[in-house]
């Protein structure tokens, strides 16, 4: 870290006073990330959690600033509080060549439906999949029947039909590759809840 010279310090104070700031938040899984801020005055990169930049105006380069956790929570309190829940993808598995859930997935279904119920204005994308037994057209159709079976359960808890999409990828997008033709982990429906 180089020491700030008086001029840089003055620029920093001016930047603070402007109230324009960008803060990088840590990823929940700890994976690296970054944002790049550029304007007529220059370019700066934020690549450490809770690192912040202040930008006085379009013509002055973005300057690093330190914001405490408490300051961040106070300044962005409402934006943080009203951040929607992150979309999630859930998987239910099926018995070979049927639209019947495996016992484990059948037991999990109430939790899946609860999660959807708890979301505000849930949008649900349902994608049916199959293993590689059976021919292509049959698998497309079986994947669709599986997805439709899940759709009925989700409509039954009151999700409007226009917020549900149903598609099939047949055996074309296996979870486990390369798979044996009769791979149970590929007989599934993926449910993305937004």
């Amino acid at each position: 870290m180089k020491r700030l010279r008086p001029l840089a310090l003055a620029a920093l104070l001016a930047a603070c006073a402007s109230g324009n700031e960008i803060v990088l938040l840590p990823n929940p899984d700890g994976s690296p990330s970054a944002v790049v801020v550029s304007n007529a005055g220059g370019t700066a990169v934020l690549d450490r959690p809770n690192a912040a930049l202040a930008v006085a105006r379009q013509s002055s380069a973005p300057e690093p600033v330190t914001l405490s956790e408490a300051e961040i929570q106070r300044r962005w309190a409402d934006a943080i509080a009203y951040q929607p829940p992150r979309p999630v993808t859930l998987i239910l598995y099926f018995v070979l060549d049927t639209t019947e859930l495996t016992p484990a997935s059948k037991a999990m279904l109430p939790q899946v439906l609860d999660l959807i119920r708890q979301r505000p204005a849930p949008e649900v994308a349902i994608i049916g999949h199959t293993d590689r037994s059976g021919d292509r057209r049959y698998n497309e159709e079986l994947g669709l029947r599986r997805a439709e079976a899940v759709r009925r359960q989700i409509e039954a808890i009151g999700v409007p039909p226009d917020l549900i999409t149903v598609t099939s990828q047949g055996a074309g997008n296996p979870l486990v590759v390369p798979s044996r033709p009769y791979e149970p982990r590929n007989r599934r429906v993926e449910i993305t809840v937004r």
Partner: peptide
């Protein structure tokens, strides 16, 4: 943006 969560004011 390079895949991330961030705040702007």
């Amino acid at each position: 943006i390079r895949g991330t969560r961030f705040l702007v004011r």
